Amino acid sequence: MEIFIYIILGAIIGVFSGFFGIGGGIILTPLLLLLGFSPTLVIGTSLMLSLGTSISGAIAHFRLKNIQWRYVAVINIAGIIGTQIAHPIMLNLDTLGHAEAFISISYIALLTFFSFTLLKKQRTHRLKRSPLLSPMLIAGLIGLGAGFISAALGVSGGFFIVPLLIALLGLKVPHAVGTSLASVVFIVSAGFLSYSMSSSLNYLMGISLIIGTFIGAPLGAKATSLVEEKSLRRFLGILYICMIASVLSNIFSLSSIGLFIICTFTIIFFFILTHKYLQQSPKRKITQ
């Protein structure tokens, strides 16, 4: 029964991953903390899931030709370096009993910044690249930060990479999502291997979640065609706000409220996508 529940949960997270390019860990990590799992187990299991969602999501976006490979290698190399910096720091914090507090505060700070970035009124033109920094150097710095965040918070780093690829390198949202998913495969692998050798992980949970993500991620990738870029930004910003609220509820020992927030967003999200799909179905039949 547990395996079935994990597969369903993985499928739901997979849809989010394919739709937003966020790897899935950004949802799973707060969720497992709300359910009372230890920080190192949460990070390791979440990285295992993120590996599955990243691979399945990257395959889906590869078929859609949304990946810009010139940035992928640079982000991967710098990201692996970032994971090896973060891993020993998190083990020391866990030994001292401060890991969960660090994860929660980091989540709140990062998600507040990126939700504001995504929800604020967008200009009609994209930001100009800095003449002092080359695109590849910018990509490397993004990868370094993403790698550190991945190993520190148990996420793929996609929620960090996607907004920065849009803002600093001028990528369109579908290309930023696809490039992000392809970029984090090796980053997540490096972090997961580090934790698997130093911590006890729930492999049954992780494998069950991954199976679910391979079902959900392609559906999420295809669903990006149902919404405009502006709406996709708004959806992602609202998701970040919901995750902030869930982390805050965990800090104040109100886990039931955090779980309610996550469930409510999920129901509304799938209702809107279903409604848009049904709206577009008659148009597809007419064109055929």
Rank of each mutant, 00 (worst) to 15 (best):
P282N: 04
T95E: 15
I149K: 00
S255A: 15
F37W: 08
L49A: 05
I81W: 04
V42W: 04
M136T: 12
A223D: 09
H275Q: 15
G143N: 05
I142A: 01
S231P: 00
K172W: 00
Q122I: 00
S180I: 02
L153I: 03
G237H: 05
Y203S: 13
F20N: 04
F159K: 07
L31D: 06
A221R: 02
I286Q: 13
H98W: 15
V72E: 07
G21E: 01
L239Y: 05
A217Y: 02
L96G: 01
V155T: 10
S183C: 14
H98E: 15
S17T: 15
P135V: 12
L132G: 00
S17N: 13
F102Q: 03
D94T: 10
A139W: 06
V247T: 13
S281N: 14
A101D: 08
G57R: 08
F113A: 12
I12A: 12
I8W: 00
L51P: 02
G220W: 11
L31C: 09
I138A: 11
A190L: 01
R234D: 02
G24P: 10
I166N: 09
L110V: 14
I55Q: 01
Y71I: 02
F270E: 09
F252V: 14
L9R: 10
A167H: 12
S198F: 05
S246H: 07
I108V: 14
T117D: 13
G23M: 10
I43T: 11
G140K: 07
A11L: 12
V155H: 03
L236C: 06
L248V: 14
G143Q: 01
V184C: 11
I210E: 00
K128L: 14
G24F: 10
F192W: 15
I26G: 11
I142S: 02
A190Y: 02
N66V: 04
Q68R: 15
P39T: 05
L64H: 13
V188Q: 03
S198R: 12
S104L: 05
L32A: 07
Q84A: 04
F269A: 06
I59H: 06
F252G: 00
L49G: 01
S256N: 13
G145Y: 06
R126N: 12
Q68D: 13
M90A: 08
I142H: 01
I55T: 07
L118Q: 11
Q68N: 13
Q84Y: 15
L232D: 03
R284I: 12
P218F: 06
S281M: 14
N250D: 15
T179H: 11
M197F: 14
L168R: 06
G97M: 03
I80K: 03
F186A: 14
L9I: 08
E2I: 06
P282A: 06
T29H: 01
S150E: 06
A86F: 05
F265W: 11
Y277C: 00
G178D: 03
M197Y: 13
L31H: 08
P39Y: 05
T53P: 01
G25K: 04
K283A: 08
G82M: 08
L127D: 09
I22M: 15
I103G: 01
L133S: 03
I272C: 06
G140H: 08
I138F: 12
